[in-house]
Amino acid sequence: MHPVQGVVKMYMREKMGWVLLPWIILGSSFFINLFIAALMPMDEHLTTGGIASIFVYMGVIGILSMSQTFPFALGLSVRRKDFFAGTILMAVMVSLFTSIVLYLLSYIEGFGLVGWGVQLYFFHLPYLSEGNVAEQILVFFSISLCLFVTGFTIGCFFRRFGKIGMTTLAIVSIGGGTLLSYMATYFDWWVTIGHYLADLTAVNMAYTLLPISVVLGFIAYLLLRRATA
């Protein structure tokens, strides 16, 4: 068996963490919202952002795969390159699964059991649920993958540079962010940024997130090459 396949199979042994747990979290958020929606007057809509939990969770697994699975894989003589390829493959498969299921739920919510009978809009959301099937799935997929890769890159950075590196990165990012926001104010960029975001459709956002994921993945790979258990 190729080691990349081995890495994926190793992740598959953690179905609970990779697949079940995010849906349990999302499911509990959904049922709470369903309960609230049922208590509300019939003519009111309830639209929530509970769906975000599953995407945030992808970022968490990205970090965990570096803190927990990487040292174990290295201990089993797995090459860093194979670990990277297997991890990204697993993330792509899980993101694809998540986005297809989310699309199906969104379809049911929007066109089948409209609002689950209580006017709840949890999966079928304005802005996100626009465009054709492929586009809607792409939107969910790109958010999921991008957050995973972000978490994974943070995990790689931590493995490579440790606590001191992580603290330095945090300080530099906060400092840089503050500086940028002052520059945006000084040079009047905010209006432009606002217009850009307002005009950005969900599909265009998805198209933007994919190259960002690729760049982050590349950075993660460079960090991983020099990471130690």
């Binding site: 396949q5 081995g6 190793m10 927990q68 699975t69 174990f72 003589s77 090459r79």
Partner: peptide
Amino acid sequence: LRQVCFIKESQKYPDAFRVNDVLASAALF
């Protein structure tokens, strides 16, 4: 690396793993 097995005292394992998961993973590599 396919020919090397290094058992160290400080080896970390994924939190969710049971003994059988560890053995099954070792079998993969």
